[in-house]
Design a binder for these strands. Structure first.
Length: 367
DNA sequence: AAATAAATAT
DNA sequence: CATATTTATT
């Protein structure tokens, strides 16, 4: 008797929780709806989850007796139900594809990113294209929900820049808002942000205008996209910031940001490793600096390859995963420059001439 | 305190 | 648009 009673009670409780959960899920779904295009699977997942739960509470058959399964353990994460849901659906992908642009040709290489790809892999066909990538509308900071949200969040964040949740180091990503050392969630982050903005008030004084722009965080995903775009445009040296930005179709991304990133990339992107074995050609080493990098003049296609962009991997090597972790750069370039002018070495920097050459009609191939 | 990503200035 | 310099963050 008692037993059944407590069971009953138990069940009711569960039911209530389920309802709450469903509600939360629905709300969630509303939010993701915006991303319909880019996160169709997420949407689907959530939808299915909702349906499932609804079904569950509408037909209270045996589980109440068994007293376990379903929502009960949502707290501990990985509510079995949901997970189960995930599995089957997950692979179903493929359903959507198509879409307008499929900028993503690529990937021959890259993405060794251990952890985070999985999902990424599946839906990577195309992610957002006109979605707000960063500055979350801050209005709604949903954090009421646990796991399920994290799933979606993870995806978004991957793009958005903060790759927490999944693996990943902690690359210097200091977007104004979140996650520093993993503690200041929710409220803290908000106040933090506000404070920051207040402090950001450079310009000294009165106006309050002229606060510095918030830093854009180039997440892996974003960078990946950047790279792809770059590739499409024919290499870092022929691609121009504007083109890149346009091709990337990432909402909110500005020319300047792209420009800056491109600059950094160009800087970094010339790893000395392996590019110039230079052991060959023991004679005088005639070097040409092409696009800022040293290159043995001897080789036939030198300029060709370089200017043509097109997989100048030999030279720009690391178009792949990441650019050389970090090392010296920067200062060296100017030094090199000056040196070459001094020594009288031929320097044919493509960008220089390209700027004049290329105007509307970009034709890098044509030297 | 050095290193570096990003913003801004030329 | 390319580079140089400054600023901000870790």
């Amino acid at each position: 008797m008692i037993n059944s009673l407590s069971n009953m009670k138990n069940y009711n409780e569960k039911r209530v929780r389920c309802c709450e959960y469903i509600k939360a899920l629905e709300e969630e779904r509303r939010k993701i709806n915006v991303f319909q295009r880019e996160l169709p699977l997420c949407l689907e997942l959530v939808t299915q989850a909702i349906e499932t739960y609804k079904k569950e509470i509408s037909e209270p058959t045996m589980e109440n007796l068994c007293g376990q399964s379903e929502c009960s353990e949502q707290t501990t994460g990985e509510c079995g139900g949901i997970l189960d849901l995930f599995r089957p659906i997950k692979h179903s992908s493929t359903s959507l594809e198509g879409e307008e642009e499929e900028v993503d040709v690529d990937d021959e290489h890259e993405s060794n990113e251990t952890g985070l790809d999985c999902d990424d892999k599946n839906m990577k066909s195309e992610w957002l294209k006109s979605v707000q990538l960063w500055n979350q509308p801050d209005s709604v900071l949903s954090k009421k929900l646990e796991r399920s949200q994290q799933e979606t969040e993870t995806v978004v964040e991957a793009i958005n820049g903060n790759d927490n949740g999944t693996t990943s180091h902690q690359p210097p990503c200091y977007e104004t808002s979140n996650v520093k050392s993993g503690d200041d969630k929710s409220q803290a982050s908000i106040s933090g942000r506000q404070k920051m903005e207040a402090e950001k008030d450079i310009s000294g004084g009165s106006g309050g205008i002229g606060r510095r722009k918030h830093r854009r965080c180039w997440s892996h995903e974003l960078h990946r996209r950047f790279l792809n775009t770059l590739k499409q445009l024919g290499g870092p040296h022929v691609a121009t910031p504007k083109q890149i930005r346009e091709l990337m179709k990432v909402d909110g991304l500005t020319n300047d940001e792209v420009k800056s990133h491109l600059q950094k990339y160009r800087l970094h992107t010339r790893r000395p490793g392996q590019t110039i074995p230079n052991k060959r050609d023991s004679q005088t080493q005639h070097f040409v600096v092409v696009g800022g990098i040293w290159v043995p003049q001897a080789s036939h296609s030198t300029a060709n390859a370089a200017t043509a962009g097109e997989t100048t991997i030999g030279i720009y090597g690391p178009l792949q995963s990441e650019w050389p972790s970090q090392s010296n750069f920067g200062r060296t370039i100017s030094e090199e420059r000056s040196r070459c002018s001094n020594k009288g070495i031929i320097r044919c920097s493509s960008p220089a001439m390209s700027s004049s050459t290329r105007t509307k009609t970009k034709d890098p191939k044509l030297s």
